[in-house]
Design a protein around this nucleic acid. Structure first.
Length: 417
RNA sequence: GAGGGCGUAGCUCAGUUGGCAGAGUACAGGGUUGUGGCCCCUGGGGUCGUGGGUUCGAGCCCCAUCGCUCUCCCCA
């Protein structure tokens, strides 16, 4: 037996309705917010991710599935969606035709991490980006879109954390101040953080090691180093969120794993999963589009993990159960072909119809009908065949009666009887 | 990358000091010759992860190996 790749997973039929529910709600919600769907490849040139996400991030350094194509290009499976979307936007000059562009995509991402609960090497993400508009109201609207999405899907027990990580200039000043503060305590930090002080000191604030938490407890905060324009932007985002009733918590230590974020950063934290397994998050990126060869405009986006959403929804919700309108029970060999034709005709009328053609006993067929939670069973045996009619059974009330074949649809739709 | 736990029926798992391979559930058939759920009966279904070792005898003990899972770092 050949089994699946570590960290990959199959979505079996008893989960797929739940997935379809999530994806349908997401599409509906994002389209209401003015986003249109874009589908980009799951593979891109490695360089795109190196330039976009940042060469020193964990994701690019050690989590990408990268291989050499026949020829010369190094290719990688996408570890996140934004870089690929922006590549397409720049490549097709979409911002020239549409200076404010709102796109979403739904699909698999790949990161070669050690898998654990709710963490996969292939995972599905819902991703939305607004480009060409750096109004704080757009930040608020993007956050509202993701918040509404979670609400529509019915995920509970989460909170929204927001922060501003400043622009390049604020970050530069802050980084120096933070390093200056941490350096005397360098030896008390965990090995990872001792390395991070060179590579990415901001991440130390997010470290969960007790000794690092202790050291960084009184560290200066990025919010104290925001210049007037970044501070003003952040204030307006918070005001806007408040004005539309989106509850949030300020989290001055929130630092996201992708280097390109500037100013607004946010994360949806589930109360049981904790911040290390966030439902999703996002932020603004001021220079990513121009770095990828596009115009010098800002963008903001978010990603939500479908597995993380699914694991926080019950499996037995009514919307996730399969719905069969009619099970046609064929009794005996004589009615086999008439029954087959009846099934086809009923399906053509838009009903969901199931039947078995293997000569099962009526009792066995009733069991199947029950398992499919069919609303009605239409029975056709020699007796019915002789009359040109069918017996209908309402599976909820057990009421049973003979009907003309042409009346079946109307009975199911509640128009007669 | 570091560290735990677990591999026995499709699924969830029990299996005592080493002594005939088990239960529940699911599936199939019957109890009802044409009627579902509840109940009762019956049945099929096993490379006990794999390889080696110890032993009269191994699911159990030893060694190796593979896999899964969970935690941490980090993210979705």
């Amino acid at each position: 037996m050949i089994n699946l790749i570590k960290g990959f997973h199959d979505i079996l039929p008893d989960q797929s309705l739940k997935w379809a529910f999530i994806v349908n709600k997401a599409r509906n919600c994002l389209e209401r917010f003015g986003f249109r769907e874009i589908v980009t490849p799951i593979m891109e040139k490695t360089e795109l991710f190196q330039r976009g996400i940042g060469r020193t991030t964990d994701i690019v350094e050690k989590e990408m599935y990268t291989f050499q194509d026949i020829g010369s290009d190094s290719l990688s499976l996408r570890p996140e969606a934004t870089a690929g979307i922006l590549r397409a936007v720049v490549e097709h000059s979409m911002l020239k035709r549409e200076p404010v562009l709102k796109l979403f995509t739904i699909g698999p991402m790949f990161r070669r991490e050690r898998p654990s609960k709710g963490r996969f090497r292939q995972f599905f993400q819902i991703n939305a980006e607004t480009m060409g508009d750096d109004s704080p109201l757009t930040d608020a609207e993007t956050i509202l879109a993701s918040y509404t999405l979670l609400d529509d899907i019915g995920v509970g027990n989460f909170s929204l954390e927001i922060n501003s990580v400043g622009c390049k200039n604020c970050r530069h000043l802050y980084r120096s101040a933070l390093v200056k503060y941490l350096e005397p305590s360098l030896n008390s930090l965990c090995p990872d953080c001792q390395r991070r002080i060179e590579t990415n000191p901001l991440r130390i604030l997010d470290c969960k090691e007790p000794q690092c938490i202790a050291v960084s407890r009184d560290a200066p905060l990025i919010t104290e180093f925001l210049d007037s324009s970044c501070r003003d932007h952040f204030e307006k985002v918070k005001l806007a969120l408040t004005s539309i009733g989106v509850p949030f918590r300020l989290e001055p230590r929130l630092v996201r794993g992708l280097d390109y974020y500037t100013r607004t950063a946010f994360e949806f934290v589930h109360s049981q999963l904790g911040r290390t397994k966030a439902l999703g998050g996002g932020g603004r990126y001021d220079s990513l589009i121009s770095e990828l060869g596009g115009p010098d405009v800002s963008g903001i986006g978010f990603g939500l993990g479908i597995e993380r959403l699914a694991m926080n929804l019950p499996d037995d919700h009514a919307d996730f159960l399969r719905n069969t309108d009619i099970f046609v029970a064929i009794i005996g060999a004589g009615p086999l072909n008439p029954g087959f034709e009846l099934v086809s005709r009923l399906r053509r009328s838009g009903l969901s119809v199931e039947a078995r053609y293997s000569g099962m006993s009526l009792k066995a067929q009733m069991k199947v009908a029950d398992r499919l939670s069919a609303g009605w069973v239409v029975m056709i045996g020699d007796d019915e065949l002789a009359l040109g009619k069918a017996t209908m059974r309402d599976m909820t009330t057990k009421r049973q009666f003979l009907v003309e074949l042409d009346d079946i649809e109307r009975v199911v739709r509640g128009e007669i009887f």
